[in-house]
Amino acid sequence: MVVPYNPALAVEYAIQFGYQAQNGIFKRMSEDCTNFISQCIWAGYGGTEGYSLTNEADILALRERVAKNYRQTSIWYGRNYASSAPLASMAFIRVEELWNYVTTNQGNGPRAIGYNNRQYWGYAPVDLALGDVLQFYHSNLGRYGHTVMVTSTSENPQPIESALGNVYVAQHTADYSFRPFGDVLETNGGIEGAWMRVLKFTDANF
Results as ranks from 00 to 15, higher is better:
N69E: 08
N35L: 02
S139H: 13
K27D: 06
R63E: 06
Y115Q: 06
C33A: 07
T34R: 05
M149Y: 07
R143V: 10
T173F: 00
T173Y: 04
A88K: 03
N116K: 07
V102F: 04
N35C: 11
Y168F: 14
E192R: 12
M90K: 15
V169Y: 08
N117Q: 15
I113A: 14
Q135R: 07
M29G: 07
P157R: 01
I113R: 14
E31C: 09
Q16R: 15
R79N: 12
E155N: 15
M149H: 02
Y19S: 15
S154Q: 11
L164P: 11
T34Q: 00
R118Q: 14
G18N: 03
P159E: 06
E12T: 09
P125E: 04
W76S: 01
T153C: 15
N35Y: 14
A163I: 09
I25T: 07
Q39S: 12
V3I: 10
A170G: 05
R143G: 12
P157T: 00
Q39N: 00
F17R: 08
Y51D: 00
R111A: 13
D127R: 11
V102R: 05
S38K: 04
A8I: 15
Y77E: 05
G114V: 02
A14D: 05
P125S: 11
R143E: 13
A61F: 01
Y13T: 02
G193F: 07
I25N: 01
A170Q: 00
G114L: 01
Y123L: 12
G18F: 06
G109L: 02
T153E: 08
C40W: 02
I37G: 00
V11C: 10
W42K: 11
P125V: 05
F181Q: 01
W76V: 00
S84N: 15
S162D: 15
M29C: 03
E97T: 07
H146F: 10
Y81Q: 07
T104D: 13
Q158K: 10
A88M: 01
G46Q: 00
W42R: 04
T187G: 14
Y144F: 11
D132S: 07
I15W: 09
F178K: 15
E161D: 14
V2F: 10
Y101A: 02
T173P: 04
F201E: 03
S154R: 13
I113N: 14
E31Q: 12
Y120A: 10
G193V: 03
G109Y: 00
Q20E: 14
E49F: 12
T202W: 12
E96Q: 14
A194G: 03
A124S: 10
Q171M: 08
V102S: 03
Y13I: 10
G107Q: 05
S38P: 07
A82G: 07
N166E: 12
V66T: 08
V11N: 04
R28H: 08
L62Y: 02
E31A: 12
L98M: 11
F181A: 03
N140Q: 14
S83I: 07
Y13A: 09
R65A: 05
G193R: 12
Y13Q: 02
E12Q: 12
N80Q: 13
S89D: 01
T54R: 10
R94T: 05
F17Y: 13
M149V: 06
G107C: 04
Y144E: 06
G114I: 02
N23H: 06
N80T: 11
T104K: 10
V148R: 01
